[in-house]
């Protein structure tokens, strides 16, 4: 039951990071958490139960749920092989009393550890605003594989990534050709694959699978957190300056002032 310990530890991490997320996004609903579930254990369709109630039926490897708004609270999670009778038998993975704090945004991933045993890992998603024109990309190592280098266009951008860790970069929006190689080598494990990093999004890329179970694959999750440009420049010459009276009118007004002065002066002299 090694996996349970791992999950409890990781669940603690969600608790801590969830509080941080809550600070960062005070607008988030006060009493719910956003949780997505990714199935990244090869070859094993599963049913997922939460608090004894079936949450996901016949959940296939390589699939991801849409973000679920879950009431904050404590959850007992259990993952059964999909072909087992409902709710019976020994769970493949389980974790009791998982704290889901309000305001958190997390993805729970069922995947293989480096040694090929299944595990549940909750990852906290960065939902802070992405600067205009940029894209955030997070790569997560959830495959039964040793350390890898993640490369974009052949250049390592996340070197030495190990299971179950992640690396995050903020890059100009666009399409990158990404591949994954064994750390320090040019032995390609996955890809290359074109990844579209849309502006204003967090794109989370999971490397998952196992060499002896259909090979290594990529899974992608996208979270929108765009922001607006900081302003709109619009002119540099002052040709349509709105503050000043146009020159001819200014001249007319000054002429009126001069005439008034001259008239007043003459009036004063004739009186005196």
């Amino acid at each position: 039951m090694n996996s349970i310990r791992t999950f409890s530890r990781a669940a603690g991490a969600v608790g801590v990071a969830g509080a941080l997320v809550l600070v960062a996004t005070p607008a988030a609903a006060a009493d719910t958490a956003t949780v997505s579930v990714l199935h990244a254990v090869p070859d094993t369709p599963v049913d997922v139960y939460a608090n004894g109630e079936r949450l996901l039926d016949d959940f296939q490897p390589g699939t991801l749920t849409d973000p679920l708004q879950l009431p904050a609270g404590s959850y007992d999670l259990a993952v059964f092989p999909a072909d087992a009778a409902d709710g019976s038998g020994t769970p493949l993975l389980s974790a009791n009393g998982v704290a889901v704090p309000a305001g958190a945004n997390a993805t729970v991933v069922a995947h293989l550890k480096e040694d090929g045993t299944p595990v549940l890992t909750p990852f906290v998603n960065d939902v802070s605003a992405v600067p205009a024109g940029q894209a955030r990309v997070t790569v997560r190592h959830t495959a039964a594989a040793p350390a890898v280098d993640v490369r974009a266009g052949g250049t390592p951008v996340a070197p030495g990534l190990t299971n179950p860790n992640e690396a995050t970069l903020t890059v100009p929006a666009g399409t990158v050709s990404a591949d994954v190689v064994l750390a320090g080598t040019s032995t390609v494990a996955i890809g290359p694959a074109d990844l579209e990093l849309a502006e204003g999004t967090s794109t989370i890329v999971y490397a998952w699978g196992a060499a002896d179970k259909g090979g290594f694959k990529l899974a992608v999750q996208t979270i929108s957190s765009h922001s607006a440009p900081s302003g709109v420049p619009g002119g540099t010459a002052g040709l349509v300056d709105d503050a000043a009276l146009p020159m001819p009118l200014m001249a007319l007004s000054v002429a009126g002032l001069v005439a008034a002065g001259a008239g007043a002066l003459r009036l004063a002299r004739s009186r005196g």
């Binding site: 007319l252 007004s253 009126g256 002032l257 005439a259 008034a260």
Partner: peptide, 17 residues
């Protein structure tokens, strides 16, 4: 005429803007 000039001038100076 002097008074008229003064009044007209003021009117022009203020009225135009």
């Amino acid at each position: 005429p002097a008074a008229a000039t003064a009044v007209l001038g003021v009117a022009l100076a203020v009225g135009v803007p």
